[in-house]
Amino acid sequence: MGLLAKAPEGRVAALLDAEISRPAFTWLRAPEIGSTMVRARAGATGAPFNLGEMTITRCALTLETGEVGHSYIQGRSKADAEVAALVDALMQTAMASRLRETVLEPLEAGMATMKAARAAKAAATKVDFFTMTRGED
């Protein structure tokens, strides 16, 4: 679910639709936009405080075969929340391993590549100190 929540907009839908045609489902809770209060800790490790809110979208659905899918994703895309819940439900069916291979793994790889590229740029800005000749020598 974490992977689906952080996916770039439209990415999960593109991967899923390339693989299967979406099954029928009924809403348990239609997509709804709201917020979550993000908390943090004073001094990083101390008592919690409220840092501010972030937008999230959630929904829940049932497949005709009875599996229930939930999603809570960052942002305000109802279409992304729907497809995330659908994948969550389908992961409980016989299609799980196929979707892991064709949806979740490419998603994970794509996001890992983006993260690694950022980390590599940060690493290039790391300071290598060297000591100059000291004045008194």
Binding site: E32, I33, G34, S35, T36, M37, V38, R39, A40, R41, A44, T45, P48, N50, L51, E53, T55, I56, R58, Y72, K115, R118, A119, K121, A122, T125
Partner: peptide, 22 residues
């Protein structure tokens, strides 16, 4: 912000696992 229903509060974020740009 005032128009959004609040779904809850997060776990306190852990800045010790931050993917640091700086």
């Amino acid at each position: 912000r005032t128009t959004l229903p609040r779904f809850g509060a997060s776990e306190p974020v852990d800045t010790g696992i931050m993917a640091c740009d700086r």
